[in-house]
Amino acid sequence: MSYSDISVSHLTHHYGERTALNDVSFEIPRGEIFGFLGPNGGGKTTMFKILSTLIRPSKGKAAVCGFDVQTSPAEVRKHIGVVFQSPSLDQKLTVKENLHFQGMLYGLYGHELMHRIDDILSHLKLSDRAHDEVEKLSGGQQRRVEVGKGLLHYPDVLILDEPSTGLDPGARIDLWQYLLELNRSRSITIVVTTHILDEADHCHRLAILDQGNLVALGTPDELKHEIGGDVVSVIANDPEKVHRMMKEKFGNNISIFEKTIRMEREDAHRFVPQLIEAFPGQISSVSVSKPTLEDVFIHRTGHLLWNDEPNGET
């Protein structure tokens, strides 16, 4: 029997009339990097808040390291490190002071605490900024301090809510390198919520949440494989018309999102010439690609991940 760090069964949560999570169940074994992928409002943040004991679920059960989030939140809190989407650092204090006060909240003190702070700062490559006030650090550096805050008490599970929020691509890569190394060296379980595809690709397994429902669960490769073939995207001068005609000719499994006609085909390399011959002069570009997680999302939910929220990153 493998030991699960997080075990969620039939979890449901309502905010008044609105259902934020609907009968969600899954297990996360020790040492896994597990991601919740979904659009804003999909239920990721609610899941994050329940697992980090900030809200109590309306129905169902969630346990972290064997402790129920409803009946023993204090035990759960000792075992988790939490990194919030919005900053939680005191801007007026130095990096070291922030970590120091955080450590004291977890009952750490003295040499042990100092040792841990130095250790974490050197891993985060921030030793030279230890005595700078947080407000003088770049966004990427601040985010690393946030992660450091969550690790001071050596938690078994690190829970991060949209960890790349506000980071440029370079800083995002650095952050993930650190998380991956942390996962390898300490076999710490990492749980992230995200709506960024390349971030989701780092995860060992993914749960796709849409409108409160768990619509898919598996490794990124498994999920992509179920698409069965390649994704063909077509840009046409009159997309609506071409879409209609394509449906007549090639079947119903063709969708259109933001003026791009999209279909999944196993025989894409043979299909493309047929397609171009069928609509001479009407197609401005055709591309064939391996399925991405975005395609998985569309496949499962019938709509785009970004939907009405194209700039979720702030």
Binding site: S52, L54, L89, Q91
Partner: peptide, 12 residues
């Protein structure tokens, strides 16, 4: 400013 968040999830 968000500081309270991390206080609220600490085992205190």
């Amino acid at each position: 400013e968000g500081y309270l968040q991390s206080v609220l999830v600490a085992p205190i």
